[in-house]
Amino acid sequence: MNAMRRVLFTLGELMVTAGVLVFLFIVWQYGWVGWTEGHSQEAQAKVLSQQFDAVHPAPSTPDAIPVLEQKIAYGELFGVIRIPRLGATWAKPVGEGVGLDVLLHNVGHYEGTALPGQVGNASFAGHRSGAGNPLIDIDTIQPGDAMVVETKDGWYVYKAESHEIVRPNQVEVIAPVPDHPGQAPTQRWLTLTSCNPRWGSTGRYIVHARFDRFVPRANGEPAELKGGQ
């Protein structure tokens, strides 16, 4: 009888321990990493912006929309994405590729999709929860909201147009013409993908935006980033 009690007691202790472990994991994933990673991503974005400033790009011909030289290496940080709706200081580095290692610290650019400013659909992915929760509030983006990608050349301003919630295998949302795979693009789109629901991953939350204008670096930050929406 005593041995039985001992076994049950130990079992109970193990279960309580398991519960504490799960609780600590949640604190770590959504609290600790969200806080530390969120701050380091914003710091990284600031460093990138300063590096872009130092590049002194060749004065571009007026009205031309420059596009980054084609081959960007996997993992290379080539831009900063800013969406004023997600916060005045919200800024995330953009890396090439959407592997777990890139998304752990950045918003990732789907390889093979258009680059910012290019005709087609420049598509990006970011975590909704975990890895700094970069896109935790993606569902607050409204039609008309500015979504700005900064590169060494300047700022590509897109305006949010629509959102949709799709299954994880619906890759047509990042087709060159969003949702119309196979069609040849004539316009410039930006698509952001993240997971849905917020703490799960059974679906994907998609935001489509349409190109508004390009602001060369020499002209300074576009008004949307200075607090005006």
């Binding site: 959407v98 390889e111 999709t113 975590h127 909704r128 994880p168």
Partner: peptide, 17 residues
């Protein structure tokens, strides 16, 4: 399988890191 932000079979499959 907690958080997955990408589409399952992107047009260009993400290479392994």
């Amino acid at each position: 399988p907690l958080d997955n932000a990408t589409l399952n079979a992107p047009a260009s499959a993400p290479p392994s890191p």
